[in-house]
Design a binder for these strands. Structure first.
Lengths: 217, 217
DNA sequence: AGCCTATAATTGTCAGACATTTAAAGGTCT
DNA sequence: AGACCTTTAAATGTCTGACAATTATAGGCT
């Protein structure tokens, strides 16, 4: 995307440092040279270096610390930070590209079906309890559409986590959460809510019984 | 992650603008105020505003254009840009968190199984041809491990695209591509290569026959 | 009408300065 | 000797002011 001939100096510097990190030339928690040193190395001014560093910080590749012996450090990207990144990206992608509700739902169901086998094998009682709790909340009458959606997301999050694979959780939780704004635009009738709750109950039952044929939803 | 009390002014400003964009208060291609105006609005200096804007640019939320009537514009996040973001994030996440090869593979297979049903329904002859071509390449003898992996990624990419759901493609292609560095650390014996090629051939055959029970790999 | 040029707006970059934060070194007292 | 305080220096965070580079628009010339 950023061709090498990008005129922006701060882009080029950010890319150079990013490449070094991704290539493993800098290990986690390693300290980068100070801004003044980087400025000298790249032959630019400090503000330009700072803009490059902020770009990297925005991608959670580095973190900065003030004070003596502070500076910029290669950041260990945590799952939480990665979630945040993915949710921001996915949310924007969906909201800006006229992705139809059907397409998004289809993707979501497909990905959740992917978890079903693993989840039935590994679901813990904790995850089951979380799911039951959300189902109970969803069946209450006075719930706003927004709260209903939020609970729906929480339920699916618990389901995905039940597969006990952090990579899968990272990928899918982001996707599900990103769809929440789309879902919030929909109003649910009492009838459709009932259907959803029934579906969720079947899902939880199947998980509890460790029956893999619940993948049919 | 970034609590509101983050001391960094450029963080706070970036967050404010990002929130406005995500909330839909600014539409695609809308022009932001100039840096000087933003500086005045937020009561900070121009360099600080610039650092905030660079953060947003790093996330592809805005693009900038120089010259008269240039400025920063809300960017329509394309699928390609989103891929790039996701690949960077996923690659780092995997390489920095001692994710085992097994966990990654498990996630990958699970997600691909998710595509199987849709792919069998919708696969075009183009996708099939792409897959066949990669399979052919993989069965050649003198191929380096790295090229073998690259071809493997290309094949799976074609498979995922066959499901004809851009959201799914975006999610999974990023995941598969991010695993390439992990896969590159592995050396394949002639025997294991043979098995993989056989597996891929079965997959392509099943897709061609539109037989959904190939999901068993 | 068509082309060229000046103009103004805006981002990109630089230099230098000061404020703020923070860990470490060193000094003082018990 | 050990605990506590103070100083110090290194580094990021921020500001000011300036100049360079770019580019769409307006106006003038032929």
């Amino acid at each position: 995307m950023n061709s090498a001939s990008n005129k922006d100096l701060s882009s080029k510097i950010a890319k150079a440092i990013r490449d070094a990190i991704v290539a493993g030339q800098m290990i986690v928690d390693e300290r980068l040279p100070s801004e003044a040193e980087l400025a000298e190395q790249f032959g630019v001014s400090r503000p330009t270096v700072r803009e490059a560093l902020k770009r990297l910080a925005a991608q959670a590749l580095i973190r900065t610390q003030r004070g003596a012996f502070g500076g910029a450090f290669v950041n260990r990207l945590s799952y939480e930070e990665a979630y945040g990144q993915q949710i921001t990206t996915s949310t924007l992608l969906l909201s800006m590209n006229q992705v139809s509700f059907e397409t998004a739902c289809e993707a979501r169901y497909a990905m959740e079906r992917a978890c079903a086998t693993l989840a039935t094998l590994r679901r813990s009682s904790d995850h089951l309890a979380d799911m039951r709790a959300e189902i109970h909340r969803q069946s209450q009458a006075g719930l706003s559409d927004e709260s209903f959606c939020a609970s729906d997301v929480a339920l699916h999050r618990a389901f995905v986590d039940a597969a006990d694979n952090p990579v899968l959780s990272y990928q899918l939780a982001g996707a599900v959460e990103a769809m929440q704004p789309l879902m919030n635009m929909i109003t649910f009738t009492a009838r459709s809510r009932e259907e959803i709750v029934t579906l969720h109950t079947h899902l939880a039952d199947a998980l509890e019984a460790q029956d893999a044929d619940e993948a049919e939803q």
